[in-house]
Amino acid sequence: MSEQEPIIVLENVCKYFGEFKALSDVNLTVQKGERIVVCGPSGSGKSTMIRCINRLEEHDSGRIVVGGKELTSEVKDIDAVRREVGMVFQSFNLFPHLKVLGNLTLALKLVRKMPKPEARETAMRYLERVHIPEQADKYPSQLSGGQQQRVAIARALCMNPDVMLFDEPTSALDPEMISEVLDVMVELAEEGMTMICVTHEMGFARSVANNIVFMDHGEIVEANPPEEFFDNPKHERTKLFLSQIIGH
């Protein structure tokens, strides 16, 4: 895969939930190392779009290419894609019956077929990277929301993905815990991780994103670098959204 080839391509992607058109001719290109923030009102299709990228949702028409592989209904393709794409969920989705370490090593053992000691070592390394190595032997229920989300990030990072997808990672957190998670995400960005992040955290967007994508009613309305986006929004809907979100 050459440097010029984009790591993710969405071409004319449409997705329906029954009668409801969730994604309408979505076109998006993501280069390696790019950080994309996706924002928009609820129901605009942001989550649906990134969930299509790792095929948690199936798109109905159009093309999605991830890491050079096109997403089809072939199962082995999907598993291969998912290994290279990490996802962090709004509700963390940690495995409740496994300790923190177990959460991180499960996929390493099952998918990467890593032997136990190596898996453990890898897991501890990533736990340190998210600054909570001392929580390794605890169960998720014993951790705070911010800690749980950081474990979730570490869990995704353990698989050494080429791209990280974040689906509103801080929306379910109490305000005082948001920054510990955003800090980790900023560090990741600085290290060069390719990221697509659905979020309402505009401060984060402004400082980290290369490109901000605004979606509404299943369409990409506007996509611009932060300075353009915040200071010079082109569309009415974008202006409206920004005034609502930044207003208070």
Partner: peptide
């Protein structure tokens, strides 16, 4: 919880493995 199963899928864990271990 469906979310947990999604997380497992997202990590590339196969359906069978997910059934056994999660």
């Amino acid at each position: 919880d469906k979310g947990i199963l999604e997380a497992a899928s997202a990590l590339g864990i196969s359906k069978t493995q997910s059934f056994i271990y999660i």
